[in-house]
Design a protein around this nucleic acid. Sequence first.
DNA 1: AGCAGGCTGTGATCTATATGACACTCGATG
DNA 2: CATCGAGTGTCATATAGATCACAGCCTGCT
Lengths: 255, 255
Amino acid sequence: MTTPRARFWYLRGVDVFRVLSEREVDRLAERALLRQYARGEVILRPGDPSDLVFVVKEGRAKVSTYSVEGREQILTLLEPGDLFGELALVGEQESAHVEAFEDTLVCALRREDFEQILRAHPEIGLHLIRALAGRLRQAAEEIENLVFRDVPGRLASVLLRLGQAYGVQDPHTGAIRVALRMTHHDLASMIGATRETVTTILARFRGEGITDVEHRLMVILQPDRLQALASGSRRGRARPEEYAPAGLRGPEEAQ
Amino acid sequence: MTTPRARFWYLRGVDVFRVLSEREVDRLAERALLRQYARGEVILRPGDPSDLVFVVKEGRAKVSTYSVEGREQILTLLEPGDLFGELALVGEQESAHVEAFEDTLVCALRREDFEQILRAHPEIGLHLIRALAGRLRQAAEEIENLVFRDVPGRLASVLLRLGQAYGVQDPHTGAIRVALRMTHHDLASMIGATRETVTTILARFRGEGITDVEHRLMVILQPDRLQALASGSRRGRARPEEYAPAGLRGPEEAQ
DNA sequence: AGCAGGCTGTGATCTATATGACACTCGATG
DNA sequence: CATCGAGTGTCATATAGATCACAGCCTGCT
């Protein structure tokens, strides 16, 4: 499974490398490493002086940081096709923890190899730029969430996000089954809250028939109500006009 | 001042374009636009379908978002040499507001032109990737701050950051004069707090001789104490071991 | 089977920080 | 020079959510 032949097929399937020729993928496969991690295993830790860039092949990984006291904050979940460890590309040390969130298969490329490919195929650079810009936007949204929304709002917002990413809509009832097992603790770490608060609010959601749990997986029964919760933000009076420049976009010109 | 000649010299000075030949800069100058904005003017707003990529030449700009109620959150301050509007590159709409924080001169390049340059000079792509990776890391730090630190901690942390970016150290007293005028409201918008709270805490800092104000500018008298405040995070008991993987890095193996 | 450890659930406190409502100080502007 | 508005300072109050401290439950292991 970790023969050059196998690696070839693994690389073939990766989006980023779609523009490469057979020949080039072949060459890359020679030099790539495949690694497997069991759920919970650490893939990268901050300060790792690694010169490897990784691509997720199978499974999912979580990127998180820890406070001095050991509180976790999940920054993002990585999907198959996602690239990480890009700081190596840039000569910087990794700054976050990356851990297998499910059993995961990753493909590691040496920095030089990757750079060489990048030089030969600027479109790959564009691809990467696109990916980074996306991640940046995601991060900006996360900041907005933390600042503008209260915990129920943030929770509603992640649930919707998870629903979009891992959800399977029931054609009959319209319910969205989230095919990813997450503990309350995980959810709490995604939204900057405590486990207890998440438990409480989730109980409330359940009580109101907004969500439910089936076979230990979340089910979103009323996405629209979650949506509403996510849009209503936390308290805060409006700033004077000049601070909220006229002509704000968005569907709701509510106020 | 906005002749091709002038534009040439403006572009010359931009870091990103250092690898270009005279000839190429020349060509770029033909097609670039120079724009000037007075403090407070809006440069980009969310939803702008612009196909321009910008580079800050002079002055500073702030990138921020607004909640529905009009609360502002400053995502980052842009310096001369910084690139923005990169979402255009990627075919997405801008998602934040960009506003001149001082009188500002920016240089705008059409997407096609920029992409062409990118294709011809993959190193520029790498440069951009580097910049984006840096911004991403910055955003991750901001998230950590919001989640792990209380307001005094976050305030201490921005002040230090501003000190590093715009500070002039007094060789005699060691005090750091921050050469950037920021209102309490601005500071509040950077750390996700209210103006009142910032005022109060700043008063506390002043009372303890940690900071001071001179000619309406912040002066950091005791950077070390700010540092300490920034490192002590908010309440929170330690998580069990497995959640804070052994061998955390960082200079402080304090705990 | 049976037990231990991770999850979930719930309540009683406590506190940081938002809210709302003012007064005061400047520096700019007519 | 009078005034006006932006920025600052302060206080009294309310509250979301963290903390602490349990108790019951599955589930996977031995």
